[in-house]
Structures are given as C-alpha cells and as structure tokens.
Write a protein that binds this DNA or RNA. Structure first.
Length: 598
RNA sequence: GGGACUGUAGCUCAGUUGGUUAGAGCGCGCGCCUGUCACGCGCGAGGUCGCGGGUUCGAGUCCCGUCAGUCCCGCCA
C-alpha cells in the first residue's frame, strides 16, 4: 500500500512520488491551502493540498479530521526557504497530496487528544482504558520502540557474539514454597490439582544446564501475585540467562559486555570497564542499603565505638543491646536543613519514622568546631570524643550530622532514606551520570523474625562461597546484583550443582527432607546425573527499559499494563466466569461480595 | 491490610470565607482566511461538579460513607 514511512522522508526523496499511510496528526486549513501532518510510528511529515497544485485532493483534504486513517500519494518537494521547520526531522520537505484516500474515519469524539502539545498530562485510567490510542502518542510509541531496540540489542549480543540459545520454558508449572504468592490455575484434566504460573524460569533453566544447553537465555514472562507499585506489575518480563562452566568472574565479565553493548547501542554511551564493585557488607556499612546510588557521596559513618560508653543512654543503650550508632554527615547542612524539618512534624522526621526510627538526633558543627545539639548529647560528649567525632565524620564548620541509633537494619534503612531524600533535594544527583555497580558477597541467609527461621536472601539454589562452607548460616553467597544509579536492574548467582550442598541449604532454611523431596526432588535427582557447574542472572527488563527511557513507571514501557488494583481497564480483566466453566473444573468460589452499605 | 493525594465540559485545569446564572485553554461544530506548523479570527454546542448520604435557608466548596486512579508502607526468595 505504501512506499515509505512518514518520519523517514528527507531531501533525498525530493522529486520522487511516494505513497504514505498513516493518521492525521493535525490539520491546518488556511482557507486556500491545507496543511496536514501525517503520522505513523516513524514520525510525521507535512502534506500540502491546495486547489491549484493538487486540485484532485483539495476537497477531500477539507473533510479530514484528527486521527482519520489515510493513504496519500504525492511528490516530495523542498519547502520554501521561509517555511522550513527545524524542530522536526522532516522539516525541510513536504509532500504535495496528489491523491488522498480515506481508509477510515473517526466517528466519535476522541477520549483525549492523541496529538499533544508539550507533554500534556492525561489521566492514567483514561489512557489505560483507551490504551491503543495512548500508544499512538509519540511518547508511548517511542517507549515501545526503545523497548524493542533494547531486546534486539540483547538478542544480537547474546546470540551472535556469545553463542546463547533462547529456549522457552513452561508457563504452566508448579507452585513453589518460597518467594512470592503464586498465581494458580485449576487443572481440568487433573481435577483437584493446580498449576502455578512461574515466578521465574529458575528451575527450568538450571535443568537446561543439566541437559547441556550451556548458554541459555530467554525473554521470559514472570508472574507474582503481590501488590503493585510504580515498578512492580503482576506479570513482568525478565531477561533470564544461565551459563555452564563459567565462574562468577566470567559470568560478570560477560554481562558487563552485554550491558556495555546495550548502553552503547541505545544511549550512545561507552561505559568504562570493568564496572566498580562493592561487597554487600561495604554497601550496607557506607550506604545503608544493598543498592547504593553512587552518583553522589554522603556516606554513612559508623560511630558505635565512640558512643558505646556514652552517658547518653539512647546511644549507649542501642549499642549495648546489639545495635549501632551511625551518622549521615551533610556538608553545609546547617545552611540547607532547618531544625524544624528534623523534629517531629518535619519531613525528614517523617521519612525516618517510616523507616522505624523514633526520631533523628543531630549535631550542628559551628565555627571553631563548636557544636550545637541537645543538652543530653552535648553533656555526654567529652572534648576528646568531640574531636574524634569530627575526625571520623570529616565534619567541618557548617556541617550537619544526622544520627541513627538502634537496631542495625532500622538505622541503615533510616539513614539510607534520609540520604536519598537529601541528596535529591540538595541537587547532588547528576541526572546525566550513568553509574553501574556490582554488589557482591551477599550473605546466604537472612533471619526472618516472624517465622523464626533463616530465609535465603537470594534464593535457595545459590551456591555458598567456597571459603565459608563450614558454617552455612553465616556464609557469604556467590551472588551478585547489578545496580544502575541506585536501582537494582539484575541479580544472579553461581548455583549449587551438588546434591549434598543443596540438601544442606534446604535444611538451613528449615525445609524438612520430606518437603525438600516433595518440592524439589526432581532437582536433587538431576544433580545425581552429571550436572555441570553453572550460574546465571536475571534482569528486570521493564525496569531497565524504564530507566533507559527516563520514565518513572514500568507501566510506561509495557504495552498493556495493569492498574495498581491489578486490573486491565482495556479488557476489564479479571472478570467473572460462567458457572459452567467453574463446574467443569470442580471449583466453587466462597467469595461473598460486600453488601452495599447504606 | 494501612497511610497520603487526586476526581468539576470530550481533554487539561481554575473555582476565594458555603451565596444566587459553575469559568478558561485545547478539542468539537459552523463561517472567514493561500505558507501554516500549538496557524489565526468570529460564532456556537457542550456540565448528574465520581457516586450515596448528612449538616445548612443555601454545598462544587463542610462532614460521613463509597467507587476509581496514583504514590508510599506492609508484601515482593
């Protein structure tokens, strides 16, 4: 039907007669001459019609309206000198519409304008209900095209350079005990039994290693029935990879090359390699989190040693009961952060309270290194300790020191949040920076106080560090996360490939031999038949694309996302089903809709 | 499960201390206009102020409930 995409026409096509198909983006009828912008996914181009140059199309051009679908044949001309448009790539040329064919009209008022000036905001529920129109808009179209280019770059790199194979794994699989809630589906053929949708292809990809497909990848849909966030959808896409006969170093090296390639092709940025590394312990110590945004400093300082015998009981007490005292030093903070904001009612106080802190103690460093703080802290601080405090934190006159005291997890969480809020507010974050960081040496387990047992921090198939094998409960894992500007975009590990070690790990997380055999017997058995050493990684593809697109929500890089209430407003899913369908499955819903309260 | 914000014309928003006929820009319709590109000018249509209840002489505005969307906490190995 057509010969070109609208957005691709340049001065090279001048003189050619071309045929374009697309949507009327805008129409400007000047009375005697009509300008149209014709749009397709490549962009738009100006089409001209007037009674003299294009008599055959003029009357039809008068009837065109926004979003009509048209086919236009005409010759490409350069624009008059004074009518060049430097803001669009096709601004040097225009097409004289010799022939216009209306392929389809718009019969109703559009729910929102597709062609938008500036970045006009439209309610998200409307956009989602009419997602097909939303996706016509330049921003969304560009996002999906970016997503496509990212996936294409990944495929090229993994397949052509590294010899990976893409292999599909089942969507209908079985429920797994650890991790997120499963989506489950009743089996009609096996009444009373249920499939689960995969939270990730983890076990299948490990089994593929057993099969000898030593380099596997998949653009894999994953499902988790948990509450939604700006960066969490119930179904999302992972770039899932698994490799045999590769050490952690080799896996990291290959993945750096992949990430390097993505940034080069998509953003034109050549990242310097190797990427910086940080151990989990160092990340927690200096940043209070396992995915530090290293675009700005504001590192935490542990001052527990200094305060362990302090007269100020809030600090010494915290340390005595196994906690810590840490400081977030803010250079120039006296100037930029008022007491009101740190005290109850202030936004920094609220931020700390959400992390579980009872409050935020602080010290202001004044001229001559005098300090200003509450009396109880000042009284408890000897001149020597004061000097030590200033040395440890590197604080200078004008600086503000924010304290976190108590349980280490809470202190880290509090100061991490304050660091990010303050970093953003003080403009310390350079948006043009691209910082990639490997965080390594995660602990194998984390204690779950509610369930009174150890939990795998990564997942229970992660191999322990060979030096730490004697005591698994405190062992480091051969696990690694890749962090992009403070967001985790991927994580992986070397896997266990020996039955004895896998059994020890299952036992460490409180899985009985029977449970382990019931849930993972197939894996343990597979380990007996020649399983190669292997490891892998999975990237949150939606999140990666979101960051590359500069969006704040993964919904903006997913064609048909769910709302926060996990609904598809376009299809209106989920929905009820026929009782006949339920009967066939031997399923009865016990759900009672809430009675209308009057 | 919890907290916060939002909901007024097709869209984006304004609407003061509760006050009489609810406004603007864009879009839409009609007319004029031959170099616009967010074209311009004129005229016009378009409203269950999310929904339900309450307070009041009077509610878009205050109160209660509810629905929807968003952000966050919990949750997400």
């Amino acid at each position: 039907m057509r010969t070109h995409y609208c957005g691709t026409i340049r001065t090279e096509q001048i003189g050619e007669t071309i045929t374009l198909c697309g949507w009327v983006d805008r129409r400007r009828d000047l009375g005697g001459v009509i300008f149209l912008h014709l749009r397709d996914r490549s962009g738009s181009v100006q089409v001209v019609s007037d009674p003299i140059r294009t008599p055959a199309s003029y009357h039809l051009a008068e009837t065109l309206r926004s979003e009509y679908v048209v086919k236009i044949t005409g010759r490409v001309y350069n624009r008059p000198e004074e009518s060049l448009n430097t803001r669009i790539p096709t601004g040097e040329i225009e097409v004289y519409a010799e022939q216009i064919e209306v392929l389809n009209r718009v019969h109703n008022q559009l729910p929102f304008q597709v062609s938008q000036t500036e970045n006009e905001f439209v309610r998200e529920d409307l956009r989602l209900k009419y997602r097909y129109l939303d996706l016509r808009r330049e921003r969304m179209s560009a996002n999906l095209q970016l997503r496509h280019r990212v996936i294409k770059a990944i495929r090229r790199c993994l397949e052509d350079r590294f010899n990976f194979m893409e292999i599909e794994t089942p969507i209908l699989t079985r429920s797994t005990p650890e991790g997120a809630r499963d989506f489950i589906l009743p089996s009609r053929v096996n009444l009373g039994e249920w499939f689960a949708l995969p939270q990730s292809p983890q076990l299948f990809k490990q089994l593929l290693m057993v099969s000898g497909f030593d380099r596997y990848y998949q653009v894999a849909r994953c499902f988790r029935d948990e509450d939604l966030r700006a960066d969490r959808q119930p179904e999302f896409t992972q770039l899932d990879m698994e490799m045999s006969f590769m050490s952690q170093e080799e896996i990291i090296d290959l993945n750096e090359e992949l990430i390097y390639q993505i940034f080069k092709e998509i953003k034109g940025i050549e990242l310097s390699r190797p990427f910086p590394r940080m151990t989990y312990a160092q990340a927690m110590d200096e940043y209070g989190c396992d995915k530090p945004d290293t675009r700005f400093d504001l590192k935490l300082v542990n001052v527990s040693e200094l305060f362990k015998d302090s007269q100020f009981k809030v600090f010494s007490g915290a340390i005595a009961s196994g906690g810590v005292v840490k400081i977030l030093p803010i250079p120039g903070g006296n100037e930029t952060i008022s007491n009101v904001r740190i005290k109850p009612g202030g936004n920094l106080f609220k931020e700390a309270a959400e992390a579980g802190a009872k409050g935020v103690a602080y010290i202001r460093v004044l001229d001559n290194n005098e300090i200003e703080t509450i009396g109880a802290i000042k009284d408890s601080l000897s001149e020597a300790s004061k000097q030590q405090l200033l040395t440890l934190t590197g604080a200078k006159p004008g600086d503000l020191l924010l304290f976190g005291a108590g349980d280490a997890a809470m202190v880290n969480k509090t100061l991490d949040r304050l660091r990010l809020v303050i970093g953003r507010e003080l403009g310390l974050i350079d948006d043009n920076k691209v910082n990639l960081l490997w965080v390594t040496d995660f602990p194998m387990f984390e204690y779950n106080a509610d369930e009174k047992r150890l939990e795998a921090l990564h997942h229970p198939f992660t191999a322990p560090h060979p030096d730490d094998i004697a005591d698994l409960t405190t062992a480091r894992a051969q696990a690694y996360d890749i962090i992009f500007n403070g967001t985790e975009i991927g994580g992986g590990s070397v896997r266990i490939h020996q039955r004895e070690i896998q059994e020890k790990v299952f036992s460490a997380i409180g899985l009985s031999t029977e449970e382990a055999n019931d849930k993972f017997g197939f894996l343990l058995e597979a380990f007996e038949f020649g399983t190669p050493p292997h490891g892998g990684i999975a990237y949150g593809l939606d999140r990666l694309v979101m960051l590359l697109a500069g969006e704040d929500s993964i919904r903006d890089v997913i064609a048909f996302p769910k709302t926060q209430q996990a609904r598809c407003l376009l299809m209106n899913a989920p929905s009820g089903v026929d009782t006949k369908q339920l009967k066939e499955l031997e399923v009865i819903s016990t759900y009672k809709p809430k009675a209308d309260s009057q």
